[in-house]
Computed example of a mutant assay.
Amino acid sequence: MLRQLIDPANAVTATGLVLSAIGINLAIAGLPEIGVAVVLWALLADHLDGVVAQRTQGRPAETGQIGKNLDSLADLVSAGVFPAVTSIIIGHGSTISVAAGTILVVASALRLSYFNVFGSPGSRFIGVPTTYVVPVTAIIFLLRPVISEVIFPNLFAFVLVVLAVLHIAPLRVPKTAGVMYLVVMAFCVGASIVLATRGLP
């Protein structure tokens, strides 16, 4: 099994998974802003692994299948588990934060499972991709200084529930392509710098 990680694309995906695990640990340690900053780099890895896979010549079909499933599991951790854990932590385990986190994880798993079976017909995703949760989470935390700390945990939980509903809604969402890749990359780098700087103790 470990040989599958020698594949460049799978190695990139695994790196993103490691970054997501680090982000979760940072959130648990009381450093959610830095955790979000790290998970933004996991999102960059998610965008990069597909490009690497397309440019890897002679890639065995089974390696590609493993990569596809590994990518989905990595997305579940970065865009499902991480925001859920972060919500529960900043909400101090409130019923709302636990419910929101649970709903997001289930919706993320369902959305990713559906995608693995049906793909993206017509080059459009069915339902909002799970990876959208990461930049939205970053935006919410970037705005945190101007949001009352009394309402921030519930606001974040509410946003996660809305995203969970959009994951499984019958929407047709175009794939990220062309200049949008550059926009996403620029946002991830810029936002991660701001959040990491702000989150330093």
Score class of each variant (00 low, 15 high):
77 V>T: 08
102 T>E: 07
85 V>S: 02
72 S>A: 15
75 D>A: 04
145 P>E: 10
93 G>H: 12
114 Y>I: 12
145 P>F: 10
147 I>D: 05
124 R>H: 13
81 V>G: 01
118 F>H: 14
88 I>E: 01
76 L>D: 04
147 I>H: 07
80 G>K: 04
113 S>D: 03
116 N>A: 14
105 V>I: 15
142 L>G: 11
92 H>L: 11
124 R>M: 10
116 N>Q: 13
132 Y>I: 15
98 V>P: 03
111 R>N: 14
86 T>Q: 06
147 I>R: 08
101 G>M: 07
89 I>D: 03
146 V>C: 08
105 V>C: 08
86 T>S: 11
101 G>Y: 01
69 N>Q: 15
142 L>Q: 08
92 H>M: 11
105 V>R: 00
146 V>K: 08
138 A>P: 02
75 D>H: 02
148 S>M: 05
145 P>Q: 08
129 P>T: 04
72 S>E: 06
111 R>P: 11
119 G>L: 13
138 A>M: 03
122 G>C: 14
89 I>K: 13
116 N>F: 07
87 S>T: 10
106 V>W: 04
103 I>S: 05
145 P>Y: 06
123 S>V: 06
144 R>V: 02
93 G>P: 09
137 T>N: 05
135 P>H: 06
118 F>G: 01
68 K>A: 14
96 I>M: 08
93 G>N: 12
107 A>P: 09
137 T>F: 02
109 A>V: 06
107 A>M: 15
78 S>T: 13
71 D>Q: 09
95 T>A: 09
145 P>V: 07
74 A>I: 02
85 V>R: 01
90 I>C: 02
145 P>I: 07
95 T>W: 10
81 V>K: 06
119 G>M: 12
79 A>V: 08
81 V>C: 06
106 V>L: 13
114 Y>S: 10
97 S>N: 06
115 F>A: 05
107 A>G: 13
99 A>I: 14
125 F>I: 11
122 G>Q: 10
108 S>K: 05
112 L>E: 14
136 V>T: 10
85 V>H: 01
128 V>G: 00
128 V>Y: 01
106 V>R: 03
123 S>T: 08
132 Y>G: 05
100 A>N: 09
96 I>V: 11
100 A>V: 05
